[in-house]
Design a protein around this nucleic acid. Structure first.
Length: 437
DNA sequence: TCTGGGGTCCTAGGACCC
DNA sequence: TCTGGGGTCCTAGGACCC
C-alpha cells in the first residue's frame, strides 16, 4: 500500500514573521487580515490565551491584555515567497508533490506499507525545512489524504512528539484517533454537515467512517461519501493543482471606511479589474465574463444596507486591461446606487480559458491583437520598474478605499538579506520580495 | 474605531430540444 | 381533440477549503 505524506506548516503566517523577527519567539502573536479587521493566524501562545481564529481585532480586548499580544498586518507576498522555498525543498526530496495551499502539500513517501524508513524520511524533511527556511512543519503519514490531515494534526498538537511526524497506518491506532476526533474536525465536514451529522447522532469520525457509503451518498453528496471512504483508508479524494491555471480570478477588498462616493468606489473597481487582468495574462489565460459586486457594511445598523452583483459577457475572450476595466465599469455603473454607503467591492473574472486556443469574434478587426501588444509592453515595464509604474488613466493613486495596515512589521530588508544569504546555492531560487503587500 | 480574501466543486431546477 | 418523457446544457446557490 502506498502512503501519502502531508507537510503542514505550524501557525504559518506567524512562523513567517518569526523568521524575520526572532524576538517574537515564545510570545503571543497574531497576524491580522487585510484590513486589520480580524485574526487570521495565531501563535500557540495566542491560542493558549483563548483568542479564536477569525476573532475581530477589537475583541482581543475581551480575551487578554492587548499590550501582551503582538499584532501584525498580513504580508501575503512574503508568506508566498517563504512557501515557495518550502515547496522547492519538498519537490527536491519527495515524489509527486501536490501543493494544496500556501502552507500545505501532499507527497508520496518513498516506501510502501508501514516501513519505518518513511518516518525517518519525514523527520529528515522536517529538520531540513527548519534549518533552511526556519519554519516549523509537521508531517502526517497515512494511506489517504483525509487520514494524513488527521495525522499531521496529531503531530502538531502532541507536545511530547518532538519529531513532529505522526503515522496513521495501524488500524487499531487509526480507530482510536477517529473516535477521539469530533466529526466537525474532519477535512470536508464543515459547519452545515457537522450540524446535520450531529442531529443524526454521528458525533465522531469513527462513527462517520462506519456509515454505509450508499446511505451517505443519498443523504448528502459524493464528496461526503468520498470523505467516509477516505476515513476507512481508501484513497479517493483528488485535489486540483494549485497555481497552475485558475478557473476564476477575483480581487476584492473591504474598505477602511464606508464610502458613498461613486468616484471612490469606481476607482477601487478599476484597480481590482486591473489586478485581475494582470494576473490573467501572467497565467496566459483569457476571460469571457466579468463579474462585479458592491456591498454595504453588514455590521452597521445605522446605515441602510444595499448590495448587488452582476456580470457581463465579453464579445470575445480577452486579457486586455482596457477591455476588462471597461466591462467592469459598465457593470459597476449598472449596479451602483447613489445614497448608500459601501464597505466592500470586488471584480471576478470567469469563463477563463487558455489564450492559445481562444475563439476570435466574427467581427474582430485587429484591435485585440494591437491591445495584446500594448498589454505586453505595459507588463514588461511594470515588471522592471515595479507594479503600477504604468497604469491606465482612470486609476487614481491612493484613495479612501485602500484598506488599513496599521501593524506592518518595520523595514526588515536587512533581515531579508541575512535570510536570503543563508539559502543553499542553486537549490532555491531567490525572488524579489515586495514588503509592502 | 474595529468582523479577510481568495478559491473549488456539487446539485437542483429551469430552459430547451426532439 | 390534444398537454409525454428523456436528454443535455446552463445557472444560481450552497457547501466546502485555507
Amino acid at each position: 500500500m502506498s502512503l501519502y505524506g502531508l507537510a503542514d506548516c505550524n501557525n504559518f503566517f506567524v512562523s513567517c514573521e518569526r523568521v524575520f523577527n526572532p524576538a517574537l519567539e515564545g510570545r503571543p502573536v497574531v497576524v491580522l487580515s487585510g484590513n486589520d479587521g480580524c485574526v487570521i493566524a495565531r501563535s500557540n501562545e495566542a491560542k493558549a490565551l483563548g483568542i479564536p481564529m477569525g476573532c475581530p481585532t477589537f475583541k482581543i480586548l475581551q480575551f487578554t491584555d492587548p499590550s501582551r499580544v503582538v499584532k501584525l498586518s498580513a504580508r501575503h507576498l512574503v508568506y508566498r515567497d517563504i512557501s515557495d522555498r518550502i515547496m522547492t525543498i519538498l519537490r527536491s526530496e519527495a515524489e509527486h508533490v501536490q501543493v494544496y495551499s500556501v502552507d500545505e502539500a501532499f507527497f508520496n513517501v518513498p516506501y510502501t506499507d508501514d516501513d519505518p524508513r518513511n518516518r525517518s524520511f519525514c523527520e529528515q524533511l522536517v529538520r531540513q525545512i527548519q534549518r533552511k527556511v526556519g519554519v516549523p512543519v509537521s508531517i502526517g503519514i497515512a494511506p489517504s489524504k483525509t487520514l494524513a490531515k488527521l495525522a499531521a494534526d496529531r503531530a502538531k498538537k502532541d507536545p511530547s512528539n518532538i519529531t513532529r511526524v505522526a503515522t496513521l497506518t495501524d488500524a487499531a491506532e487509526r480507530d482510536a484517533l477517529l473516535e477521539a476526533t469530533p466529526v466537525g474536525d474532519v477535512w470536508g465536514i464543515g459547519r452545515r454537515l457537522n450540524e446535520a451529522l450531529l442531529s443524526r447522532g454521528i458525533a465522531n469520525a469513527l462513527q462517520l467512517s462506519r456509515l454505509p457509503s450508499s446511505l451517505v451518498r443519498s443523504l448528502f453528496n459524493v464528496n461526503v461519501e468520498r470523505t467516509v471512504r477516505e476515513l476507512r483508508g481508501e484513497d479517493c479524494v483528488e485535489i486540483s493543482p494549485l497555481h497552475i491555471k485558475h478557473k476564476s480570478i477575483m480581487h476584492s477588498r473591504t474598505f477602511a471606511t464606508a464610502i458613498s462616493s461613486r468616484q471612490e468606489v469606481s476607482d477601487a473597481i478599476v484597480s481590482f479589474a486591473e489586478a485581475c487582468a494582470t494576473q490573467l495574462r501572467r497565467e496566459h489565460s483569457v476571460a469571457a465574463e466579468v463579474m462585479v459586486f458592491v456591498s454595504g457594511d453588514r455590521f452597521r445598523e445605522d446605515l441602510p444596507y444595499y448590495s448587488d452583483s452582476n456580470s457581463i459577457r465579453l464579445p470575445e475572450p480577452s486579457a486586455s486591461t482596457m477591455t476588462i476595466v471597461n466591462a467592469a465599469l459598465s457593470v459597476f455603473n449598472y449596479i451602483f446606487r447613489d445614497g448608500f454607503y459601501y464597505r466592500r467591492a470586488g471584480v471576478c473574472l470567469m469563463r477563463i480559458g487558455s489564450d492559445a486556443h481562444r475563439q476570435l469574434s466574427l467581427f474582430d478587426n485587429g484591435d485585440s491583437r494591437r491591445q495584446e501588444a500594448l498589454m505586453k509592453a505595459i507588463d514588461g515595464i511594470n515588471s522592471r520598474l515595479g507594479r503600477k509604474a504604468v497604469k491606465l488613466a482612470p486609476q487614481t493613486t491612493r484613495g479612501e478605499w485602500q484598506p488599513r495596515q496599521n501593524y506592518l512589521a518595520g523595514d526588515n530588508s536587512a533581515a531579508l538579506k541575512i535570510y536570503t544569504g543563508m539559502l543553499p546555492q542553486g537549490n532555491v531560487r531567490i525572488k524579489k520580495i515586495d514588503l509592502n503587500d
